[in-house]
Design a protein around this nucleic acid. Structure first.
Length: 578
RNA sequence: GCAUCGAUGGUCUAGUGGUAUGACUUAGGCCUUCCAAGCCUAUAGCCCGGGUUCAAUUCCCGGUCGAUGCACCA
């Protein structure tokens, strides 16, 4: 139950700032828009979100995590299209303040190839052109390059250009050959990466929704192009049902329709099983970190909205009180676009050799020249003639070939035509890439916003972060009822036993017990252990549930195992009550 | 980037051309046998730079950050 819907953002960000989740970065020098610091609790929570992601992708799917530099050389982003596609010549209309693509303005004014011009030339040319928005003659304008990538140089005094990566994905693509070898030359396989990416946004807004430095968790799953409809574990999610908003429905302004992944694939709503599988897995993952299903939808990109590389693309969107539907995860079929691009730019093959079940018998004609004669006869041109001959179509007289515009007749006795049946054992295939790409910061924001709640306890307002126990930064609090009669000693021992079990437990003995509970409620600690006078009699303590504020007694020696089970979700608090 | 509005302890706030009010929080102590109780004490603040002025947190200009609208978001 969220109250006062419009200011939940402010309330939750205020709480996040006060209690050490999210801070403006380098505040003492004045913060910088688009950058945030995760405070102690925020960093812990973010790590727990990332660890759940790892549970799904690394442990669940068997796609190992790699870690690549956040800076890469220019070639990587020339191949990926980011150098060109991310950089535009822009200008601003002095009359209506509209930002315009300078090259588009010039083209509209009849200028050819404006993108090859220098900025000054272009500025001079478009001065007489009209603004597309207000139709005023532009006059004196400044043309500037705007590239969303942060640029740097590599090495001292070096002119070697580097860029901060705008996505983690390219690291997995450029490592393709190593990855393929690691996975022993078999498809499908995947690699994942959780790390920082950078985009120099023109005007970052909306708190932690649009950042200039952000954390992505991306999986690149390499599949045989003909196998995209056969995910080996598709059964797992075949009946998984969720609302899907297709582009057809969006164009007709219709609502999302609930269907199972099997139906979605059968009806062609989602392009293939692989994509459908990760759509469902993403839904499952987001619900696991604490996103309410009713605030979650999957929206298909409109055809003109898709990136240049994608054939089908779905966004997981989370409904925010403040920002509406926020695109949080992108699921794209990137086809073979990236591998082809890097193969071409780097000159390295990025293919997988796929063996046929049975070798194929293929008739092949080879033309074998008599090297010793032809070599002596044609000398420096011999090599080119051999190559031309190999693809020539000879007749009984011989073969006619053309090299550098010069025609040669090669008599039939100077080569042998050999028709043979060869075994073709397989083929080189460029895999297609299915890419689920998660915005970790947006997930963290959604977790914070959805956890925020205010209720009334004993007539007093209570602020409580209803985190899933799996993402709550502090997992359990331990309190002595009084700081005397050895209650504090026992509580310290319990806290220690929890720490030894890998639980993040916070001990607190300051002030009234009620205040301590409220303090933990506000940072979302799901459980609290209290040592009271009965503890000394019967070796039991109370365990309190954050959401219901109910307490049950359990034996001290059961505390670590019980808390572990509660935190990982294998035990529900309600079942302790009976 | 443009336009409008805003910025006072950690938080919320009063107020002012002469360094600042109150509450909450936090810390220490007293008290206290389970949900922000009470009492004492302490810590802590005028976003940054420039200008006007004897003196600027206050007035003016510029910037930063935030909110909103426009633009941008491969």
């Amino acid at each position: 139950m969220i109250q006062g819907s419009n200011d939940v953002f402010e309330k939750v960000m205020d709480l996040a700032k006060r209690r050490g989740f999210i801070w403006p970065t380098s505040e003492c020098y004045g913060a910088v828009a688009g950058f945030i610091d995760y405070g102690p609790l925020g960093a812990m929570m973010k790590r727990r979100v990332e660890d759940i992601w790892r549970d799904f992708y690394v442990i669940g799917e068997g796609y190992y995590e790699i870690e690549c530099p956040t800076i890469a050389q220019e070639s990587v982003f020339i191949a990926s299209g980011h150098v060109k596609g991310f950089s535009d010549k822009m200008c601003q209309c002095p009359h209506c303040k509209e930002f315009l693509r300078a090259d588009h303005v010039a083209e509209a004014g009849g200028v050819k190839n404006p993108s090859t011009m220098k900025n000054e030339e272009l500025a001079a040319i478009i001065a007489s052109c009209r603004c597309a928005a207000c139709e005023e003659v532009l006059g004196t304008v400044e043309v500037f390059n705007f590239n969303l990538m942060f640029q740097t140089t590599i090495g001292p005094g070096s002119q070697r250009v580097g860029y901060l990566r705008p996505e983690t994905a390219q690291g997995m693509f450029v490592d393709f050959s190593r990855l393929l070898r690691f996975y022993r030359d078999k498809l499908p396989f995947g690699a994942v990466q959780i790390g920082k990416a950078y985009r120099n946004e023109i005007s970052p807004r909306q708190g932690m929704i649009r950042l200039r430095e952000f954390t992505q968790a991306e999986a690149e799953i390499f599949v045989h192009p003909n196998e995209k409809n056969h995910h080996p574990s598709f059964r797992r999610y075949a009946d998984y049902t969720m609302p899907l908003l297709t582009y057809v429905q969006q164009e007709k302004c219709e609502d999302a329709v609930s269907m199972s992944m099997q139906q979605a694939v059968d009806k062609g709503v989602i392009a293939n099983e692989y994509l459908a599988y990760y759509v469902a897995l993403t839904h499952h993952l987001l619900v696991t970190i604490g996103i309410k299903p009713e605030r979650l939808r999957f929206r298909q990109h409109l055809p003109d909205e898709r990136a240049h590389y994608a054939t089908d693309c779905w966004d997981a969107e989370i409904r925010s009180e403040r920002f509406g539907w926020v695109e949080t995860v992108g699921l794209a079929d990137r086809t073979d676009y990236d591998l082809n691009a890097h193969a071409k730019e780097s000159g390295t093959a990025m293919t997988v050799f796929i063996q046929y079940d049975e070798p194929k018998k293929v008739a092949r004609r080879r033309i074998i020249p008599n090297m010793s004669v032809l070599g002596k006869q044609y000398r420096t041109k011999a090599k080119a003639i051999f190559e031309a001959l190999a693809i020539a179509t000879p007749n009984t007289e011989g073969a006619d070939v053309e090299v550098d515009g010069e025609k040669f007749h090669i008599p039939a006795n100077l080569f042998e035509v050999r028709d043979e049946i060869v075994d073709i054992r397989g083929e080189e295939v460029v895999p297609h890439v299915i890419e689920p790409s998660y915005g970790i910061d947006r997930m963290c924001y959604a977790v914070l916003e959805q956890a925020y709640d205010e209720d009334v306890a004993d007539g007093e307002a209570r602020t409580v972060m209803r985190f899933s126990p799996r993402v709550a930064p502090i997992q359990v609090a331990v309190f002595p009822l009084m700081t005397r009669d050895e209650l504090d000693t026992i509580a310290h021992e319990i806290a220690r036993s929890l720490q030894k079990a890998g639980i993040l437990a916070e001990y607190d003995d300051s002030g009234a017990i009620g205040r301590r509970y409220r303090r933990q409620d506000e940072i979302g600690t799901p459980f609290a252990i209290t040592v009271d006078y009965d503890t000394k009699e019967d070796q039991t303590v109370t365990i309190r549930d954050r959401d219901s504020m109910k307490q049950v007694r359990i034996a001290i020696d059961k505390v670590p195992s019980t808390v572990c089970a509660l935190v990982n979700g294998s035990l529900k608090f309600a079942s302790l009550e009976s």
